[in-house]
């Protein structure tokens, strides 16, 4: 079946089907959120439209990525203890590489922090993103490993 959304979907048919469900569920939740927000807007006047719009984007993205992470369909080939431990190391090195490369690009192309507070800000942001990335990847890996082990 051809659709413009195909480029966002994986080649594996099971994963493709699950992803379509996640996108559809996300779209319905987004629709309901908009309805609730319209009702809320009639009761309390909402001034900051930009934040509300960003909230909708966040709801959709969090729902779809959350469902993807806990479904255990990301690491389809991790079924042994050895490959599981190896993948944890890969996730750790990928996260560290991202933090280091982002920091270097930031310093080269954007700005070199001028005081201690600015250094704290950029380091804190990068560390938070790195930790969240590692934890979400770890949860996804753990769920995939558990699911794959049961299917052997």
């Amino acid at each position: 079946m051809k659709s413009w959304i195909s480029f966002l979907l994986p080649d594996d048919e099971y994963k493709e089907k699950r992803m379509l469900y996640f996108f559809s569920e996300g779209a319905i939740i987004l629709f309901l959120s908009v309805i609730i927000m319209i009702i809320c807007n009639r009761i309390f006047t909402i001034n900051d439209v930009e934040i509300v719009l960003l909230l909708f984007v966040a709801i959709f993205l969090l729902y779809v990525s959350g469902r993807y992470i806990i479904s255990g369909i990301e690491y389809t080939d991790i079924a042994t203890e050895h490959s599981y431990k190896k993948e944890i190391k890969n996730i750790f090195s990928r996260t560290c590489s991202f933090v280091v490369i982002f920091m270097l690009l930031y310093l080269i192309f954007l700005d070199i922090p001028s005081n201690r507070n600015e250094w704290m800000e950029i380091t804190g942001l990068l560390l938070s993103v790195g930790i969240v990335w590692f934890i979400t990847s770890f949860i996804s890996l753990r769920r995939s490993y558990k699911k794959n082990k049961e299917l052997l």
Binding site: D11, D12, E13, Y14, K15, I73, T76, D77, A79, S144, K147, N148, L151, L152
Partner: peptide, 27 residues
């Protein structure tokens, strides 16, 4: 192996496992 069959038919090992367990109905 599940992996060999998966590679030959162009899906993941997980999908083959799910089909074998009867938890996914393939196309």
């Amino acid at each position: 192996t599940q992996e060999q069959l998966a590679k030959r038919v162009g899906v993941t090992r997980q999908t083959i496992g799910l089909i074998e367990k009867g938890e996914y109905n393939p196309s």
